[in-house]
Design a protein around this nucleic acid. Structure first.
Lengths: 246, 246
DNA sequence: TGTGAGCTTTGACACAGATCAACCAGAGGC
DNA sequence: GCCTCTGGTTGATCTGTGTCAAAGCTCACA
C-alpha cells in the first residue's frame, strides 16, 4: 500500500479537519497523535471488523467508503451508518465492535491503537470533548435517519439519500453557471436498499422515476447530476434540510 | 411541586447510577453538581422543549416518561428516543434542541443550568467521559432502532418495543415462581405507532394478535404480563437481545 | 343516571412496496 | 468473436400495512 501523505486525518495538516479527531490544531497533543498513527488499507468488499469482535484500534477514513451494518439471523440487513472520508470509527472505552464495518470501495484508514489513544484522551480534554461532539453529530444523523426509515415513502427515501451524498461526498463537483451538482454514486442499488430499508428493485424503480421526472440526470448507472438541489430536497420532504448530515 | 428527596439523579445517593451523569461517585465534583442542581416538573402532554429552541439546561429524568420526536411539515412524526427515569437530556456544547421533547406522563427532571454544568465538565474529566459513554449508549440504541424501523415486520416491531420496555421500565415486577414479567404500558397506541413507524390501527391489531397467540396477557388496555420473555424476544426476531437497551 | 371525550378495537377496502421472474448492459477472460 | 459474471432494469402479481369508517370502553363530570 502507498501511504497517503496529503489527504490524511493526522493533526499535522488536517485538510478535512471539521470531522477529524483533532480539530483544534493548536497544542502539543497533535504531535502525540501524529506519533502513534499508522495506515491500513482494505479492498472493496473486505470486512474491516465484524460485530462482536474485539477492536483494538480507532481511526478515521482517509479515502473510500465503508458501511456500518446490522444483520438479523435470517439475513435481513440494515445499514446503520455510512463512513465517508474523515469519518471516525471506533468507540473509545469499549472493547467490542457493535456493528459490521465493511469496505464498499477500496478504503484507506488512519488508525490509532486503542490503548495509546485512550491514554492520550485521558491526558488531553480537547480530544475527549471533540469525540463527544462527533458522537453527538452521529447521534443526530442516526435520529434523522430514523425519521427517514420510519415515515418517508420510497421516493422520499431515495431523494434523501441522494441529498446526503450530494452534501457530503468529496467527489462532488458543482457547475459554476447552472449550480448543478454532480457526483459518482459509489453504492450499489443493493447497498442503497440496505440503507433505506427497501428492496433493490424498489430502489431501481424510484431512481428511474426521479430520472423520468427530471429531478436527476444519469450518465451510465452510477454518475448522477442534480440540476436543481432545491428540487431534490423538496422531493426528500425535508423540513430539516439542516446541517445534520453535513 | 414536591422535591423528591430519594429517587433523584444527584450524586449524593445515585440510586439509579448506571445511567446517571455522575456514576463515579468518588470525588469532589459530586458536591459541585449537587450544589447547582434544581428540579422541574411537567404535566402529562406538556412540552419540555421544542426542536430549534435554545436550551439553557441539561438534566436527567427523575420520574415519568418523556419522548423525543421529529416532525415533518405535513405532520408525519417519528419518535427518535424514549426517556425513562435516569436518562439524560441535553447536549453539552450545543445551544439548540434538535428534537421536540414531550412529557408523556407527569415528569420530574433534575436539571443543571448549562453554563455551570459545562464549566464543571471542563474541570472534571470524569463527567466528560461519562457523557461520552452515555452518548455512545444512545447511539447504539438509535442504531439498533434503525434495524427495527427498516427491516422488521409490524409484529416484530411491537414485540421489540415490549421487550425494551420490559427490560427498562422501573414499574416492572417479576413473578418469582413463574418468571412472568408484568408492567404498565405508559404509552398510548399512537405514541407506540410513532415510535415504530406504524399507524395506531396496526399497533392495536398486532397487540391483539400477540394476545391471541398467548405471547402477552392484557389486563385492561395498559397492563401487560409476559408469561415467557424468551417467547417475546423470539417474536421480536432479536438476535442481539444484547444489552444495548439495558 | 346520563353524556361526552379520549382512547381503543374492529372491519372493509386500497395501495405502496415486496416478491418472483425474465431480460439487459458492460466488463473481463479466452 | 463468444461466454460468463455482476449489477441493473422492468414487468406481473401478491401481500402487509395504510386508510377510512363505525362502534366499544372507561372514566370524569354534570
Amino acid at each position: 500500500m502507498s501511504v497517503p501523505q496529503f489527504q490524511s486525518i493526522q493533526c499535522a495538516d488536517c485538510p478535512i479537519r471539521h470531522r477529524a479527531v483533532c480539530a483544534r490544531c493548536d497544542s502539543g497533543e497533535l504531535e502525540a497523535l501524529d506519533a502513534i498513527k499508522y495506515y491500513r488499507s482494505y479492498e472493496a468488499g473486505q470486512p474491516v471488523i465484524w460485530s462482536g469482535d474485539t477492536m483494538n484500534f480507532v481511526g478515521s477514513v482517509v479515502s473510500g467508503i465503508a458501511t456500518l451494518t446490522q444483520t438479523m439471523e435470517d439475513g435481513r440487513t440494515q445499514m446503520v451508518g455510512l463512513l465517508l472520508p474523515s469519518d471516525f470509527v471506533g468507540r473509545p472505552g469499549r472493547d467490542g465492535a457493535a456493528y459490521n464495518v465493511i469496505a464498499t470501495t477500496d478504503v484507506v484508514m488512519c488508525c490509532f491503537r486503542k490503548k495509546p489513544f485512550e491514554d492520550l484522551m485521558a491526558k488531553t480534554p480537547h480530544i475527549a470533548h471533540r469525540l463527544l461532539e462527533m458522537t453527538l453529530d452521529e447521534l443526530d444523523a442516526a435520529r434523522e435517519w430514523m425519521l427517514v426509515l420510519g415515515r418517508k415513502t420510497a421516493r422520499e427515501k431515495i431523494a434523501s439519500l441522494l441529498a446526503i451524498i450530494a452534501r457530503r461526498d468529496a467527489s462532488l463537483s458543482t457547475d459554476a453557471v447552472t449550480g448543478a451538482v454532480s457526483f459518482d454514486l459509489k453504492l450499489t442499488r443493493e447497498a442503497m436498499a440496505d440503507y433505506l430499508g427497501l428492496t433493490l428493485e424498489t430502489v431501481s424503480r424510484q431512481i428511474s422515476a426521479l430520472k423520468k421526472a427530471g429531478v436527476i440526470v444519469l450518465e451510465g448507472k452510477r454518475h448522477v447530476t442534480v440540476p436543481d438541489m432545491r428540487r431534490l430536497i423538496e422531493e426528500a420532504g425535508d423540513d430539516s434540510d439542516g446541517g445534520v448530515f453535513v
